[in-house]
Design a protein around this nucleic acid. Sequence first.
DNA 1: CCGTTGACGCCAT
DNA 2: TATGGCGCCAACG
Length: 117
Amino acid sequence: MSKTISLNDKNKDFFHSVYEVVRLIPKGRVTSYGAIAKYLGSARSSRMVGWAMNNAHDLNDVPAHRVVNRNGLLTGKMHFSTPLTMENLLKEEGVVVLNDQIVNFAQVYWDPNRELL
DNA sequence: CCGTTGACGCCAT
DNA sequence: TATGGCGCCAACG
């Protein structure tokens, strides 16, 4: 039995789609929760994208550190092994982070609605 | 079963 | 510009 997750088939699909999009984010680039939600057709379900990332922690092939909020703020840093993991991973990819804020956000921003199609 | 919370974001004031 | 309210919806107590 075992159902660590009690999601409906419909939502499983949503979560899975989120993982796919996140996997497509190029190294050194980032996107936002809202952009992913919109790309999946649920523009107002950005919170669910965040929840999906939480589940995604089990999968090692989902670069959750490349997803930030619409201001380029690292709001999800607390959910990583250490509060600095997210920031360090981004810096390793060339993303400039200062005070939990991506400085060159406009340059590294990757919008699935625009880049992907 | 019901009320709160939360990796968000848009809109009204 | 800053603050507050609401939509969204799964998980939790």
